Amino acid sequence: MTKKEIREMILKKRLDLDQEKYEEYSQKIVEKLRSQIKKMDFGSIALYYPINKEVDVLPLIGELLKTQKKVYLPKVLGKQMKMGRVKSLDRLVKSKFNIPEPIDEEFSSKIDLYVIPAIAYDFKGYRIGYGGGYYDRYFLQNPKTYLIGVIFNFQLIDSVPTHPNDLQVDLIITEKNEIEMK
């Protein structure tokens, strides 16, 4: 299957996910994610604002904002994506893609930990996103530190068609598994 076919099939499955299961699975994933990041020494973390039934990490963002950690969310500027600092979830504005983004222009590329959504991940940590290439381009220009992919278990596939510049994460967390890349 092509990336486009995989993208369409899995996105439909995710959008059709029953709301109760969506909340239950998201909660399990966030618990595992919380446990993982507690073990890590980090001062800054980049997450994402969930759309189209991506794993709901908003409770974790809310918790992190109450700590001394610096929290960042993606902000799209033209064909580029930057990580903008967030100090409150109230200080976001919808982008042209209708995704809430940081209002402030406080950007950083020195981020210790990234939590990255996807349409699908394979067992080697390669991802299929929406097809815009924003994360791939971002990590060509910025240091790749520790990357955690979060998806529902049905979004885990055997193999993703890859290109040399495709992003690969270090750890994938689903409601059922935690898969560390070797």
Rank of each mutant, 00 (worst) to 15 (best):
G129T: 01
P102N: 06
Y72K: 09
I157N: 08
I172T: 06
D166Q: 12
F152E: 10
T162V: 15
M181C: 13
F154D: 05
N142L: 04
K53F: 07
K12E: 14
L17N: 02
K21F: 09
Q141G: 00
F42Q: 13
K75T: 11
I45F: 08
E5W: 01
D170A: 03
Q19F: 02
V150F: 09
R137E: 01
I29Q: 03
K70N: 12
I37T: 00
D90Y: 11
K28P: 04
F123H: 06
E105G: 00
I173R: 04
T145I: 01
L60G: 09
P102S: 07
K94V: 15
D41W: 08
E5Y: 01
I10N: 02
D158P: 07
K124R: 14
V55D: 09
Y49P: 05
Y146R: 15
T145C: 06
D158V: 00
I103K: 10
L92P: 11
K13Y: 03
L113F: 12
E178P: 00
K28L: 14
V160E: 01
I6L: 14
I37N: 05
E63P: 07
P143H: 05
V57P: 11
T145F: 07
I29N: 01
F152V: 07
Y48N: 08
Y138D: 08
Q155N: 11
N165V: 05
G125A: 08
K144H: 12
K96W: 05
I173P: 03
G125S: 00
G133K: 04
G131P: 01
E24S: 14
V160Q: 04
L58M: 13
I173H: 05
Y138H: 09
K75C: 04
L17W: 10
Y126M: 05
S88A: 10
A118T: 03
Y48D: 06
G78L: 03
K124V: 00
S35Y: 07
L60K: 08
I29H: 04
D112F: 04
Q19R: 14
I119T: 14
G78Y: 00
K182R: 13
I111P: 04
D41A: 13
N153I: 09
E106N: 15
I116C: 08
E105P: 04
R137Y: 03
P164L: 07
R7H: 13
T145D: 03
D166R: 07
Q68G: 13
F97L: 15
K69C: 11
Q141E: 14
L11H: 02
N153S: 14
K38E: 12
T2H: 09
